[in-house]
Design a binder for these strands. Structure first.
Lengths: 160, 160
DNA sequence: TATTGTTATACTCTATAACTATA
DNA sequence: TATAGTTATAGAGTATAACAATA
């Protein structure tokens, strides 16, 4: 190509081969987190064929598995979902036969959420895949770096 | 309250005051990233009144500011957006008078994207707020921890 | 009155495919 | 044929408010 010496600085409009300047994005921790999150979501979908099974839907199923009989409002609090979002995610899993709502005899407002046998089986399968995916995501990190990353991310969240 | 000694373990269904067991979510780096990302988005919206100005829309405006005259396909590559997503975000900013599409005389397929005066002014304002927000997000971290976090997140993305 | 859950609405974001026009 | 951009559609996520049933 001609014009090999025409590097006239980042302000020149339209130079076709220059690399893109990310501006202040490169120095923003929040942007680094967001981009890493995109990578995590991509890895999730790469390991789980059914695109309708999303990270958020998995989170809820995992919480139901670890806490049988939780109320929807408790699931909402634990996952930082709205109550209406929890309703929709439970509708999704219930339609697939993976969770069930059981009435609480003592207080008829809340429903208690439980895994079905089919839900427990699917959850076990998803756990295996998600743990493998997380290990792969962290493949470039040493175990100490992995722990440090989790610690620093938790500190970020303390400002919530 | 009565029942102070009735902690019967995490499996008991419906114990109203027990804390929620997050299961394997607690050990997933990808989940820690996702939750930190939610915290970052919340901080972003807390500092910028207009809810229609989202992190993604800010990213694009910042890139246009740092690289006047880029093609949309270059913006898409740099931000990991689809071309159609870039079209919609540029439509959004153009409708607000913040960016403009200019024809490229040498090749009439691409349009070159530039900030308007109004766009440059808004971008400067947003940069100030976003940098302050990021500093606030990292308030619990030392500068060394902040750098380490950015380094580790970048390593996660290397698996993309 | 307050709480739990549902429903409805609206907007953002993502993904995909079909389409136009230009090269 | 390949590239740049647009348009259309669909699903997922989020936010809010109004609502019903129950406490």
């Amino acid at each position: 190509m001609s014009g090999a010496t025409q590097r006239l600085g980042a302000q020149e409009a339209g130079a076709p081969t220059r690399s893109v300047d990310h501006g202040i994005l490169g120095s923003l921790v929040s942007h680094a987190v967001a981009r890493a999150n995109l990578a995590g979501d991509a890895a999730f979908h790469a390991l789980i064929d059914d695109r309708s099974i999303t990270p958020q839907r998995f989170w809820l199923l995992e919480l139901v598995g670890a806490n049988p009989g939780l109320q929807q409002v408790q699931l909402a609090d634990a996952l930082a979902f709205s109550r209406s979002a929890v309703t929709l995610v439970i509708d999704y899993w219930q339609a697939r036969g993976c969770v069930e709502r059981r009435a609480d005899p003592a207080d008829r407002r809340p429903s208690r959420i439980f895994l079905t046998t089919e839900g427990a089986s699917l959850l076990a399968e998803l756990q295996t895949r998600v743990l493998a995916q997380d290990a792969r995501l962290c493949a470039e990190l040493t175990r100490a770096e992995c722990r440090e990353l989790a610690r620093l991310l938790a500190k970020l969240r303390s400002n919530e």
